[in-house]
Amino acid sequence: MTAHTTAHQTNFQKLIEKNHASVSLRRKVTNAVMLSVTGLMTILALIPLFWIIGYVVYKGGQYINLDFFIHTPRPLGMEGGGVLNAIQGTLIISGLASLIAIPPAILAAFYAANNPNTPLGVVLRFSTDVLSGIPSIVIGLFAYAIIVKPMGHYSGFAGAVAMAMLMLPTIIRTTEEMLKLVPHTLREASLGLGAPEWKTSISVVLPAALNGIMTGILLSVARAAGETAPLLFTALGNERYDLGLIIQSGIAQKQGFFEILKRVFDQPVDSLPLTLWKYAQQPYPERIEQSWAAALVLMIVILLINIFTRLWVESRKRRLQG
């Protein structure tokens, strides 16, 4: 206690000495300079953001056209063609990945929200953090080893599994937060009426938090849709993929629903970022133009989802907090 008091007194003494007029000016200047430096740092970090967005819009806007969305790629060196295969692939992979990741993620989030301090709750939060820290390329290796290797060929399904593992931690975390925002009184009212815990969770708490959970899922889909590394050796890429043709030929050959589904998922597919990556490294100018267009499409989708979800979450938080 005494040591404390003396320490404070010495500090005070020092400060009084420091406040001597000549020193005071230097301190004022340092203060002003350093505070402005932090502002400059902020501006410095935002330059690449606007530079990238601006340049992608400028370049992509020049090369984007309707063909880009409705045609599959032409052979190398030929003008025209589009990336329909990649757009379909992105939708297929993200859709299937969401189907795989959402149920366990929401269930785990229920556990995390209701039991934050049990040993398993602590372990869950920790392992969610760790899982989100694993490099996506390593997740790709994992999906390769558990799916591609045993099945003997690359497939959209393997890509979707890798994507699902990337989405899992994000969905768990956002869902947990949304579940915690649901007022306790709602839960207690349901339990008080004699509803069992599971029914309360599914038909009272979940609907109350559903919109928030959906935005969390959308955000994680947006992030996963832009990932390339886990698809490199799982989905691999496939320039001849065409969903319409697969379904048509399936119907023509009188295949059942599940057989067609199997053909859709059980072969290599492309995705937009994967196509962008491949095209950017090719020496053909029209392919590089298409990769700028692909970048524009990706950016628009991701920016829209981000802005929309954030606006929505903020308005909801404000409403819930009164």
Partner: peptide
């Protein structure tokens, strides 16, 4: 938001740029 957008830009777009 803006700083978080920096994290939302896909890695391949950074590469292309």
């Amino acid at each position: 938001w803006l700083v978080e957008l920096l994290a939302a830009i896909p890695s391949v777009v950074y590469g292309l740029w």
